[in-house]
């Protein structure tokens, strides 16, 4: 049954799994932060990821800004877009049921993707990797850019976790996820903190988009293809759990990759099978016992 298996195949899929897992982790991290503080299921996250990739492509083709410049500028552009979106769409409905923000962000996806498709068409745009070549590990060839994506996303996830767990700002965020009224009664400008948190989560999506641009085609639908998996990751990890989102992101990427080796037919299903099992056994997610934001 497994006579086709080779170490090259397994390690290759493991690497692809890790790369996909890096995107899953970074995107679900942003979603978890936004959900944790705002109770908003940000359906627009995939569109914001796509905007990050387009911003990098636009900066390169219009202003000649390199990938490394875009890695800084594009997430800031997307975060500012998120800030405007929070002010115009989410803040006016923050007192309503979560369903309204879910529908509002979904509407935003349709509008953003529609406009991008109108402007740039449906076929993707190429974006050359900034790092060429790679290293031969003996059992496989590892492109430098893919190694960079895995390491950088890991760094971003750890950095974000440390920001939230080890700093005063993070303590404000964790406290505000529990009792925003009381945090505000301490004199902290919680509405501004909510805006900036949303912008930060959206910026993370934009950053993922820049990282993805050289690997995948830059296209208007690149985000929506990923979002269903990202939501499954967040549900498996535990809604609003940062550690859960990151660990589950990598785990799901690897499981998906390995399933492609052992039983390719189930590769697209395995995530949702895991989600169902987790929902049945631990309805609040794998890290539910650890509190909502850690």
């Amino acid at each position: 049954m497994f006579e086709h298996l080779s170490i090259q195949l397994i390690m290759g899929q493991l690497l692809i799994g890790l790369i996909n897992g890096s995107f899953y982790a970074m995107l679900s991290l942003g979603l978890a932060i936004i959900f944790g503080l705002m109770n908003v299921v940000n359906f627009a996250h995939g569109a914001q990821y796509m905007l990050g990739a387009f911003a990098a492509w636009f900066l390169l083709t219009t202003f000649g800004v390199s990938y490394w410049g875009a890695l800084v500028i594009a997430p800031i552009m997307v975060a500012i877009f998120g800030l405007i979106m929070e002010r115009l769409i989410l803040r006016p409905i923050q007192h309503l049921d979560h369903l309204y923000s879910l529908l509002a962000t979904y509407a935003a996806v349709l509008i953003i993707e529609g406009l991008m498709r109108q402007q740039f068409g449906s076929s993707g745009m190429p974006y050359a990797p900034p790092l060429r070549g790679g290293v031969n590990l003996g059992f496989m060839f590892l492109p430098w850019y893919r190694l960079w994506v895995v390491l950088f996303s890991l760094l971003v996830c750890i950095g974000t976790w440390m920001l939230i767990e080890r700093t005063k700002l993070g303590a404000y965020l964790r406290a505000a996820t529990e009792k925003p009224d009381i945090v505000e009664a301490f004199g902290i400008n919680v509405p501004r903190m909510i805006s900036l948190t949303y912008a930060f989560g959206v910026g993370l999506a934009g950053l993922s988009g820049v990282l993805a641009a050289p690997i995948y085609q830059v296209s208007p639908s690149m985000g929506s293809n990923l979002m269903i998996v990202i939501f499954a990751v967040v549900v498996i990890g535990g809604m609003g759990s940062i550690v859960g989102a990151v660990l589950t992101g990598y785990l799901i990427g690897v499981v998906e990759g390995l399933t492609k080796v052992f039983y390719p037919e189930a590769a697209n299903l395995v995530i949702f099978v895991i989600m169902i099992i987790v929902l049945v056994l631990r309805p609040n997610g794998l890290t539910s016992g650890r509190g909502t934001s850690t």
Binding site: Y172, R174, A175, E178, K179, G291
Partner: peptide, 17 residues
């Protein structure tokens, strides 16, 4: 009392600026 369950005692104590 609004003690934050996600924070330890020290963090709760020093949370207000």
């Amino acid at each position: 009392r609004a003690i934050f369950s996600l924070l330890n005692v020290g963090e709760n104590l020093t949370l207000p600026p």
